[in-house]
Design a protein around this nucleic acid. Structure first.
Lengths: 222, 222
DNA sequence: CACCTGTGATAGTATTACTATTATATTTGC
DNA sequence: GCAAATATAATAGTAATACTATCACAGGTG
């Protein structure tokens, strides 16, 4: 059995899009459109139109665009964690796992064909370009209670625990990894659009090296 | 003479708000409203109303809300750089300057009464809550050419150069400081709203310590 | 066959993000 | 001290957005 199910909090949809054909097509087309024209320019009307369906049908699955974005980004973090867990099985020490985790944060991964309606490569680009928008709102506290940010939090915990294996005294595991995950995304964005804010003209390899050094130097006992 | 003028690229406004009384009142009231209700919920109509002026008058100064936000945030980075430069004069080595810079990134500063129409404390809270929104758009490349991000870039350069004084071999000064500045903001946000993403329940002191360690450990020669 | 679910089609509303026009008050230039 | 230019207020109007609501139909299920 090749199926793979990424679980996303039920508060992140009106009606579970994974359960119907239209739902899956909505996910698929939303990812395409959002990557192509950016969150701000997407509307449910455009999504409906592109699907040869209607605005109202999209609203049946998601309350609004913000919820849709939150769904997609949570799905991505969930998927990434699964992917990391798989790769960690082949490694036997925390340092190697951390290094591999950082690579996975930065590098667009090989195709994952187990979930045909989601193009993880496009989704990764959406995460890079849009992820802070899900929490930088006045509604953050209520949405937090509804589990809008669980994916991000879990990933931070996982990586933070690896850091604690390396150095149980390290005082800032959550801060470190929320910062490193965030930097992994924004360095990709800066490399492409605002190169003066990065030193990664060499590409993703340099981002990985920068983040790996930064992470290990922070954690290691002096 | 106590006056102080923070220069902001002329592409960031239609008509310079610093040059008229209404312009200054627009800045002042926009900061109040944006801090209070958040970027998304602000409209030029509301700003006009709050000023007992009109929507159209606000449009004479700024093309749209996005440009207004970019103006405010650039103003803030410019102001912070001036502030840092002042404090650096009292310090004589790069490490102390870096430490002080990180403190200033995190700590709401004492009142600065030289610019009466701008409340820097409120503005700092806007920067924490909204700053990535100015570049995370599909228009980033054209806006970049127009100087929308100069404030941020200059600050990164300044801090990067300090790092190079400490260690001329350090390979990632821009990446490091765009990440540190960004982390300084997001850690403040997380501490208040998503505490599981930080370890700073102790408050700003912990954020400063976390960032200072991270920065110095990254830069220092091994 | 009756019913329920999911979808499509259509309509309608309030708000937003502007643009345009005109009237008036204030400042400045001569 | 008057004319001209400038700044603002007042108002109107448009297109798009972000929804909400209603109804009809098609397919499958009990």
């Amino acid at each position: 059995m090749n199926a793979l199910n990424i679980s996303v909090s039920a508060k992140l949809y009106n009606k579970n899009p994974e359960e119907t054909d239209l739902g899956k097509r909505i996910l698929s087309k939303s990812i395409e459109l959002m990557e192509e024209m950016g969150y701000e320019h997407v509307t449910f009307k455009k999504i409906g139109l592109a699907l040869e369906s209607t605005e109202a049908s999209v609203y049946r699955y998601f309350q609004n665009k913000h919820q849709l974005l939150a769904y997609l980004i949570n799905w991505y973090w969930g998927w990434l964690e699964v992917k990391m867990a798989q790769e960690f099985m082949m490694l036997n020490n925390a340092e190697d796992k951390l290094k591999r985790a950082i690579e996975l944060l930065v590098n667009p991964m090989g195709e994952d064909n187990r979930i045909p309606h989601i193009d993880e490569g496009l989704l990764q680009r959406i995460v890079v370009a849009e992820y802070p928008k899900i929490y930088l709102t006045k509604e953050v506290d209520t949405e937090n209670e509804e589990g809008y940010f669980l994916g991000y939090k879990r990933l931070c915990d996982t990586l933070g625990n690896l850091a604690l294996q390396l150095n149980p005294e390290y005082k800032y595991p959550h801060s470190l990894f929320s910062s490193v995950i965030s930097a992994a995304q924004s360095q990709q964005f800066f490399t492409e659009h605002l190169p003066r804010l990065s030193d990664a003209s060499a590409g993703r390899g340099a981002i990985v090296e920068f983040l790996t050094e930064l992470t290990l130097n922070s954690i290691q006992k002096k």
